[in-house]
Amino acid sequence: MEIKFNIDENFEKEKVEFWIRRMTDKVKRAARDLQVEQNFIWGYQENEAYRVEYRQIYSIQVENEKTYICTKDSNYQFKGRLYQVKTNLPSDFIEASRSAIINYHFIDHLEIIRNGNIDAVMKNGLRVQIARRKIKNLKERLGL
């Protein structure tokens, strides 16, 4: 694909145009990444709010009806539902199951555990169950 940049700091409004034969997931992801204006979400620890940047997030998961943001070595509570955060996330994130989203750059490996479920073992040792029907999305994201 040919990519052309017109860089001029005097532009009043920045815009991106795609000239494509058909819409693909790759283009949709690129468009979504370009539209993400905020690069962080607010996470809470003992009633104190912290800016958690997307690039730091390993996973966002629901446990006991609460949504938690997990980074390399901290956990924060997100005061909202998983679907609310899902729409704003960049394409580094994939849905692991109905109750978890993971940043695929931080996956160390997958492991089939004894009961037949599949765990994504993250680089910090965190285990997140990944639904078998989501494996296809992960493969696609990894370019397989």
Binding site: H105, D108, H109, L110, I118, R132, I135, L138, L142, L144
Partner: peptide
């Protein structure tokens, strides 16, 4: 097929 897919993904993750 599932075991094969997991192995394939793990190999790709190792390359990264």
């Amino acid at each position: 097929h599932l075991f094969h897919e997991v192995r394939e993904i793990n190999n790709k993750l190792k390359e990264k």
